[in-house]
């Protein structure tokens, strides 16, 4: 069988995907694609249809209509799927009585990979010391790492990860961010990672796809979604009228609101404080506003 031309083909392509469970339309006409060498965040509140989309993509759920393709093919027709796609699903779980190494070795056996890949993958996710331990005693974070190890077994070029940060501690999340960036930017893999917590993926992703109630609400690069801007700072002062021109003189962009509230861009809190000190102006509030992406995310998903 002649495969399509990889160079012109998206690693992951979802076209007008529709899936209902009974009367509930879990995914309602979603389309997007993920290119090699990039991390795409698939964002939405819980129950938005993220997991269903990913399960359709992985051949676990059959869509009502539409297409979900990996490397131009349906997952179920890939000759050796684990060598092309590594997947971590929220519900992917383990037999508690089995050791981490044995869990991976079973997958290796079924996939026709050498047993040695099990230990290599465990080392890669930092579970080398726990290889011989039964999963029973694993924390949620360790289980997530083990799930990630299972995705690495076949050295795939496409990664599909459903809420991989769940249960990881802050250090684990930091490690995961670095790991995903490494896979995409250094090894040229295509990474699709879902999350309902924007801050988990905000620093990792190149592109964002936002879904709510089964419908796509926005997609684009991170820069497109945030308008290229940095975060703004809320400043409150009784002498706002004096402060505003001073901040503008210092290089900030100031937006005036009611009762002494200013929204300042282009200056950080320290610089604003310095300006206020120089002019002997009393500040009653200095607050770093949530990033614009967070606002976009909430606006797009709230009330839907």
């Amino acid at each position: 069988m002649v495969r399509n031309n990889f160079a012109t083909m998206a690693a992951i392509e979802i076209k007008n995907l529709i899936k209902s469970f009974g009367p509930v339309k879990a995914v309602d006409g979603v389309s997007f694609s993920v290119e090699a060498g990039s991390v795409t965040g698939y964002l939405g509140p819980n129950g938005a249809g993220k997991t269903t989309t990913l399960r359709c993509l992985l051949g676990l759920v059959t869509p009502d209509s539409g297409e979900a393709l990996v490397n131009g093919e349906r997952y179920v027709t890939l000759p050796r799927p684990v060598t092309e796609v590594g997947a971590v699903l929220e519900a992917t779980s383990f037999h508690p009585g089995r050791t981490a190494r044995n869990h991976l070795r079973i997958l290796c056996t079924a996939a026709g990979l050498p047993d040695a890949r099990a230990d290599e993958a465990l080392e890669q996710v930092g579970l080398g010391d726990a290889a011989g331990k039964r999963v029973l005693g694993f924390s949620l974070g360790m289980r997530q790492r083990l799930a990630l190890a299972s995705a690495l077994l076949g050295r795939p070029r496409v990664y599909i990860l459903d809420e991989p940060a769940n249960g990881l501690d802050p250090a684990g999340i930091e490690w995961l961010r670095g790991f995903l960036r490494h896979l995409a930017h250094d090894e040229g893999a295509a990474v699709l990672v879902s999350s309902h917590v924007l801050s988990e993926v905000e620093q990792t992703v190149d592109n964002v796809v936002i879904i709510a109630k089964g419908r796509l609400v926005r997609q684009g690069s991170l820069a497109e979604l945030t308008g290229g801007g940095t975060g703004s700072v809320r400043v409150r002062s009784a002498q706002a009228a004096d402060l505003a021109p001073a901040l503008e003189a210092a290089g900030g962009t100031v937006e005036r609101a009611d009762d002494g509230l200013l929204r300042v861009r282009g200056l950080d809190a320290e610089a604003i404080g310095q300006v206020a000190l120089d002019r002997r102006i009393v500040l009653t509030e200095v607050t770093q506003e949530r990033s614009d992406l967070q606002k976009v995310f909430l606006e797009l998903t709230e009330g839907r």
């Binding site: 684990v82 699903l89 037999h95 996939a111």
Partner: peptide
């Protein structure tokens, strides 16, 4: 049934979608 009880069926079918 342990494949369903522990949801290992997901991993099983990811490796072998047939």
């Amino acid at each position: 049934t342990s494949e369903f009880r522990y949801q290992t069926i997901t991993g099983t079918f990811l490796v072998t979608p047939r």
